[in-house]
Simulated scan of single mutants.
Amino acid sequence: MNEHEVINATRHWVEDVVVGYNLCPFAKRELVKDRVRFVVTGAATEEALLQALQDELLHLQEAPEVETTLLIHPGVLQDFGAYNEFLDVADGLLVFLDLEGVFQVASFHPDYQFAGTGPESAENYTNRSPFPMLHLLRESSLEAAIDNYPDVDGIPDRNIELMERLGADKMRAVLAGCFRSGGDD
């Protein structure tokens, strides 16, 4: 897939899954305001991905008009175990750049699996995405959104309940549907 197709599939996922199922009640506002940056990296190694992550963190620091970045990396860390281990490296980069507490990295992957769940558990679809990606969030914005949202602690349980109600088969189909192409894309 080319960069345009990767971004379209990811945008459909954000619209249809993240916003459509209200998995993140804070996402719609930023998507509508066009403050979500979609970036595809051609990184084929973890080192190249780490450099792309650093570049995006520094870009986010210099671009207050961008609220959040989805750094999509289809060419590296396809294996969820390796991806999960890389998250510690990403957090280490935040410390190295003295950006811990300024930004945080959230994780989404096509094979996302929460500890203690089976690979086909429906609840894993709360964090399953079309491609491996790192979601870069501004801590201050996240804190403000949390402060203004009732029962933020209940979001994960509601999301798990919704995924279990819809079922893994349904969510697998919804995720596959993100790869559709349309004339308005």
Results as ranks from 00 to 15, higher is better:
T41W: 06
H4C: 04
F108I: 01
G167T: 05
D169L: 12
F131R: 02
N84V: 04
V76G: 05
P64N: 14
S181I: 10
S181P: 00
F179C: 01
F38A: 04
F108S: 01
D55A: 15
Q61I: 00
L136V: 03
D16M: 07
V19F: 11
E5A: 15
T45P: 12
V19D: 06
D34Q: 15
D184G: 10
R172Y: 01
I160N: 09
Q78I: 01
G118H: 08
N22A: 07
L99T: 09
R35A: 15
R138C: 03
L162Y: 05
A48V: 00
E62K: 14
A27P: 02
R138V: 05
N84A: 14
A144P: 00
N2W: 04
H109R: 00
V19N: 08
I72G: 05
D185G: 12
D98E: 15
M1I: 05
P119A: 11
A44Q: 14
A176M: 02
A63C: 12
Y83K: 03
E143L: 13
I7G: 01
A48T: 09
G42C: 05
D88I: 01
Y125H: 04
F26A: 01
L49G: 08
Y83D: 00
P132Q: 06
A145E: 09
L162R: 10
E123W: 00
H59M: 10
A90G: 14
P156M: 12
A48K: 12
G42Q: 14
E62D: 15
G177V: 06
T10I: 08
L23S: 00
V17P: 02
L23P: 02
L93M: 15
Y125N: 02
V18C: 05
G42W: 01
A106D: 10
K33S: 14
L77D: 08
L166I: 10
K170F: 14
H73M: 10
L70C: 05
E3C: 03
E15A: 11
Q51P: 00
L137M: 14
Y112P: 00
F108W: 06
D147R: 13
R35M: 09
Q61F: 08
Y83G: 02
E3H: 08
C24M: 06
L23D: 00
H73F: 09
L70P: 03
L60Y: 11
A44R: 15
V18M: 06
A43M: 11
A106F: 06
H12P: 02
N124W: 07
S121P: 03
H12Y: 10
G182N: 06
